[in-house]
Design a binder for these strands. Sequence first.
RNA 1: GCGGCCGUAGUUCAACGGUAGAACGCCGCCCUGUCACGGCGGAGGUCGUGGGGUCAGCACCCAUCGGUCGCG
Length: 399
Amino acid sequence: MDFKIQKKLKNSLGRAGILKTPHGEIETPAFVPVGTKASIKALTPEQVADLGAEIILSNTYHLYLQPGDETVAKAGGLHKFMNWQGPIMTDSGGFQVFSLGAAYGKEISKITTATKITDPSLLIPERFDDSDAPRLAKIGQDGVSFKSHLDGSVHYITPEKSIQIQHNLGADIIFAFDECTSPTEDLKYQEEVLERTHKWAERSLIEHKKLSGGCALFGIVQGGRDENLRKKSAKFIGSLEFDGYGIGGSFAKEDMSTAVKWVNEILPEERPRHLLGIGEPEDLFMGIENGVDLFDCVAPTRIARNGSLYTKNGKVNIMNAQYREDFSKIEEDCGCYTCKNFTKAYVAHLFHGKEMLAATLASIHNLYFIVNLVKKIRQSIFEDTFFEFKKEFFKNYFK
RNA sequence: GCGGCCGUAGUUCAACGGUAGAACGCCGCCCUGUCACGGCGGAGGUCGUGGGGUCAGCACCCAUCGGUCGCG
């Protein structure tokens, strides 16, 4: 894998470049649509490519459970199996340690607010207490045991196992197995976890080297919201021979930018950085300004399926009464398939009628909006207009 | 014409004689490495109408209107 920085943003960590993978080049910064189970929900690969996406991300844990990485391997690998010709990345399953563990059945997300985190009812007192609310993921020193949400079977995932699965799946870029830490954990726990995640990173790298294949491996920086831990993690993970780096874990919305900055000031400049699971428009500007090259996020597709659509004037809920007879486009000057062919009233009708096409048209628009926003930001870096573009965008988006 | 059953939220239906509920719909909010076509909240009913018995009725009795089924 080869990464070239073409242009740097003045007075910041931002840059634009090109990332070469076995399945094609990616112009960075870039947004990576999420197709957890080898499918961008509601869309065909052709639709995903047509809206401008260059690379997608799938999930190790979900594909391991169903249909099984061996099956995908027999099919000839992910690209052939799902008919996506472009680059693919797979997440290691580390996020499921969080989503099926500490966050399971709770109202916790990886983004939190400072006020929320001081709420004592959200703090988790006994880490390994079995009497705790039932979790589908339990963490040990060696790996994580998952209880399948599909059939209840128990699976033990270690860093080695995750890497083996990912090699079977055959993505272009794979991730080290980490623990995505809950924002409700205290500093002491964050510190313990960091040590473990660092050990897992080394083990992931060793296993990766053992296996032949042309894929690249990204290590993952953790450390929660703490400056020292973030810097410590960036230093350690950055010192290992990864092809690129993921920035993972939980953030408070307010200080996400400083956390990203701490990390990217330390990580090797010449290797690509991926901000895991982040993708609201304001976060994209923030990340790019602070040296992030790749983003993935379920937000555009998930909120689309629930009726929220991105526009340059902010998000709108297409199910609101005011759109039932609004025969204008979602965005008059949008170049996406949905806006070129359909009205708000029609899309609203599809949602109210629970038609499957609603999810498709909404997902096309939202992904186009986000993928294209990042492309425009990239362009603004080359044209030295990043800060003006950002200011102009925010003026309309948050009004 | 006779007999039975049914009239409760916008709709389809619940509710031992003691505070009228659900589902869907409607109105709105939320979603950041997807257990996610998901989650949360809100508005909305003088219980067809008119009498009566009862401390107390959506529920019991009578009448009436509407619907429905059966028999003529």
